[in-house]
């Protein structure tokens, strides 16, 4: 099994936090809202919330160019 991040598969490993996932995906843009299985995760909790195998993660960037 694996995670689906914005519709694309992504390898899962034990103890993966949301912030660590962001690093792996190189999603470095600050203005983004993150939903795990449809539920929003507040920015402050992203360092501590752990993901589980098969989770569906949607990262909505609020970005519209320089």
């Amino acid at each position: 099994m694996a995670l689906t991040v914005n519709g694309e598969p992504h390898p899962f490993r034990e103890g993966l936090t949301i912030s660590a996932l962001m690093q792996e995906k190189r999603f470095s843009y600050p203005l983004k809202t993150i939903f795990v299985n449809g539920a929003r995760v507040d920015r402050k909790a992203q360092d501590t919330t752990l993901l589980s195998d098969g989770d569906k993660v949607d990262v909505i960037h609020l970005m519209s160019g320089g």
Binding site: N6, G7, I60, H61, M63, S64
Partner: peptide, 12 residues
């Protein structure tokens, strides 16, 4: 228009 993130990244 700057839709790259909505289209390519967020897949909205």
């Amino acid at each position: 228009a700057w839709l790259i993130f909505m289209d390519m990244v967020n897949k909205q």
